[in-house]
């Protein structure tokens, strides 16, 4: 409680029409901490991250980054805030009209207005951090496998040396081995650069591995929060059911019979 949290959410709410997605989220993330939000598909995990970044505007509530309420920041200064962020999107969201290196250097080119040659060198350096060689730089994103696209996405997210990185389902759609490679990369990248990380996933293996702290989103609220090691003995029936992947339990899936 001595330092200002890197990210602080207070009573963040968001509805789409009559559908309430976030019903009052409270969350503190300390500097350098890696927090993973678990929860079923369609429970609003992505909405939570996107409202922090400002892609989606929350209906109400306080979202503070370094103690500054970013919901009150005027649009013209929003870029200043977004500089602190990097994001790995679920499907990679690489720009398919640009080669890999331009994807990675995109943010750097926009922000620092450096020459293309210099930007390319920076991009190749960043690609090396995620274990990709320089030959990948010239390829188009559509020529890459899913795992490589994720890695390029990760390289793009960290290329601007962000203070906070968001990971949206970093391991979804990958084979278990590639998923673990991505987990290792996330750990090495985040820990090495002292980055604060907020991830969302429903892959428990990944969550246990990359998280310092795990919290669970259910029906628009964070219903449990604890150190990653205690997730298996949470004593919370909802978390218990999710962690064990049981169909029977307090969480009722809407399955038509």
């Amino acid at each position: 409680m001595n330092a200002t949290p890197k990210i602080r959410l207070r009573d963040v709410r968001k509805s789409f029409g009559s559908k309430r997605v976030l019903a009052g989220i409270d969350l503190d993330i300390a500097k350098g901490e890696s927090v993973v939000v678990i929860g079923g598909s369609g429970t609003g995990k992505s909405v939570m991250i996107k409202s922090i970044i400002g892609i989606i505007l929350a209906d109400s509530g306080v979202i503070e980054v370094d103690g500054q309420d970013v919901t009150q920041v005027p649009a013209s200064q929003r870029d200043e805030v977004n500089r602190k962020f990097g994001m790995l999107f679920q499907g990679g969201a690489l720009f398919d009209s640009l080669p890999v290196w331009e994807n990675v250097a995109f943010g750097v080119i926009q922000r620092e207005h450096i020459g293309r040659k210099q930007a390319k060198d920076r991009a190749i350096e960043t690609l090396a951090k995620v274990g990709l060689s320089a030959d990948v730089a010239e390829l188009s994103p559509s020529e890459l496998s899913g795992g490589m696209q994720k890695r390029v996405g990760l390289a793009r997210a960290i290329a601007g040396e962000p203070e906070i990185v968001f990971f949206d389902e970093p391991t979804t759609g990958l084979d278990p081995i590639m998923a673990d490679v991505i987990n290792d990369l996330i750990i090495s990248v985040v820990k090495k650069q002292g980055i604060t990380a907020l991830s969302i996933t429903h892959d428990m293996h990944s969550a246990r591995k990359i998280a310092d702290r795990i919290t669970m989103l259910y029906e628009g609220k964070l219903i449990w929060d604890g150190p990653a090691g205690t997730v298996d003995n949470s004593g919370n029936p909802y978390v218990q059911q999710f962690v064990n992947g049981a169909a029977e339990g307090p969480i009722k899936m809407q399955v038509r019979r």
Binding site: F85, F89, Q90, G91, A93, D96, G107, Q110, R156
Partner: peptide, 11 residues
Amino acid sequence: EQIDALTTLST
């Protein structure tokens, strides 16, 4: 989500 990605890259 490429349009969202643009926003996160200060564009």
